[in-house]
Amino acid sequence: MLRDAALVAGKDLRLEARSRVALNQVAPFALLVLMLFAFALDPDRGILARVTPGLYWVAVLFSGLLAVQRAFAVESTDGVADALRLSGLDPAGVFLGKVAAVAVQLLALEVLLGLGVVVLYGADPSSVALLVPTCLAATLGLAAAGSVYGILAAGLRVRETLLPLLLLPVLAPVLIAATSAFESALGGFPGEGWRWLGLLVVFAALYTGLGLATFGVLLEDG
């Protein structure tokens, strides 16, 4: 299963490294979102500093949505889905591979957005001990839930509209928990953030489990 996962993740990341869609389109989009927030919120009044955690995670969520859509659009064209089924790979392995590939892209995006937030909004990233695990847990949750709904919507004509409708409400708890954890980390009182980190870990474990259990069903004929 893990070998299958590594195969699928390797394939996706190689695809991404060659096509550079994430680098050339998703990453600029994420930075654009950060700039739009700044325009909308009048940066001089100190609002920006207060709402940085929320804006950061909203930006991650929206650009992550694009990444998920992209990761599963490549599966639905050119009969790749059929090839995947015929390959005899373990569905659970395919799921883990997709999650890993999406998670790696999301982490890259988060690092980029983190730099953007530090440079553009003046955030202070000194409580690394809380920020990094929060990012990891939130990313795993995003990637797991995103992969379940991504494969579900892939190949449908309405996927561009259906995926956000299904995925965003599911991811709202991640947004809330990650934002709260970041707030306490950036605000200088990291003690309270650990509870939210716990929630993120539970969410990630839950959706990874559900994905492993249901991915076989979702991969059945396209």
Binding site: L156, L162, L165, L166, P169, T214, L218
Partner: peptide, 26 residues
């Protein structure tokens, strides 16, 4: 909102067996 999404999946213009399968997972 999640339930509205579920009901939207049930209204997808798909072949029934596939729609039922997707709806069941959602």
């Amino acid at each position: 909102v999640l339930v509205l999404g579920y009901l939207a999946v049930r209204r997808l213009p798909l072949e029934r067996e596939r729609r039922s399968r997707l709806a069941a997972v959602v």
